[in-house]
Structure formats: C-alpha cells, structure tokens
C-alpha cells in the first residue's frame, strides 16, 4: 500500500472532511457553552426585575444546582407528598367506656368449673 500513489483529490477529501467534522463539533461546543450562560443571564434579569431590593447580587453558582442538591430536594418532596393525609381537627376526645355486665362477655363462662383432683 503506497499512500503516495493516492491522487490529490483523495488527500483533499481526507483533510478537508476531517477538518469540517471538527469545525461542526467545535461550533456546537461554542453554542452549548453559550446557551447556559444566556439562560442564567435571563433568569438573573427576571429575578432582579421581580425583586429589586432583595436580590442585589446573584452569583451563577447559586443558580446552578448540583446533582446532590436535586436529589435532596426530590427526596424531601417525595417524603412530604407521601406523608400527606386528610386535615384533622387535632381535638382528642377520651370517652369513658363503661363495662356493663353481659353473659356474653362474662369471664365465668369462659372457664370450666373443673378443679384439679386433690
């Protein structure tokens, strides 16, 4: 295999083709480095508009949540929604239960009247 016998067109396609692939992906990299910055800028702007005094300085770090933070928030939400139930009055009423005699619940009838032989 002698690469010198390859015509100039082949060399052109090889070099130019690889170069274009690089350029295309570098272009994409540039765009995707810029997009989060633009999004953060938009969020900061809208936050400043909403609350001029409270939000003086917003750092980019405070807008970016790490995976751990997201997991903690998701866990907290999950637990909160799982433990939710109907609203109650919170009044505890203690009712005295009167035990009236009834032969149905009489203890006497639940024992055999048989003593151990002496």
């Amino acid at each position: 295999m002698n690469l010198l016998i390859v015509d100039s067109m082949t060399w052109t396609i090889t070099i130019l083709g690889w170069f274009i692939v690089f350029v295309a992906l570098v272009f994409l990299i540039g765009v995707f480095i810029t997009v989060p910055k633009l999004l953060n800028w938009g969020i900061k702007r809208s936050l400043r508009k909403k609350n001029k005094d409270a939000v003086k300085e917003i750092s980019t770090d405070s807008l970016e949540l790490s995976g751990e933070t997201n997991a903690a928030i998701a866990m907290a939400l999950h637990m909160f929604f799982n433990e939710m139930h109907d609203e109650e009055s919170n009044v505890i009423t203690i009712k005295q239960v009167k035990k009236r005699y009834s032969p149905w619940s009489s203890k006497v009838y639940s024992f055999n009247n048989v003593n151990f032989p002496r």
Binding site: M1, L3, W11, T14, G17, W18, A24, V26
Partner: peptide, 28 residues
C-alpha cells in the same frame, strides 16, 4: 460540551481508512 471534540477526533478512523482504501485500489 468540550468532550464533544473527542467525538470529532475519533473520526480520524473514517478518513484514514478512506485514504487506505484508495491506496489499495478501490474507487473514491
């Protein structure tokens, strides 16, 4: 996104083989 460049670098295989196949007598 910078890791995307590695996807471009590995495409050298395509163009190197293109060159090799041309040298072995295949048409373009």
């Amino acid at each position: 996104p910078k890791l995307m460049i590695l996807g471009a670098a590995a495409q050298v295989g395509i163009f190197a083989t293109f060159l090799g196949a041309s040298a072995l007598g295949f048409t373009a």
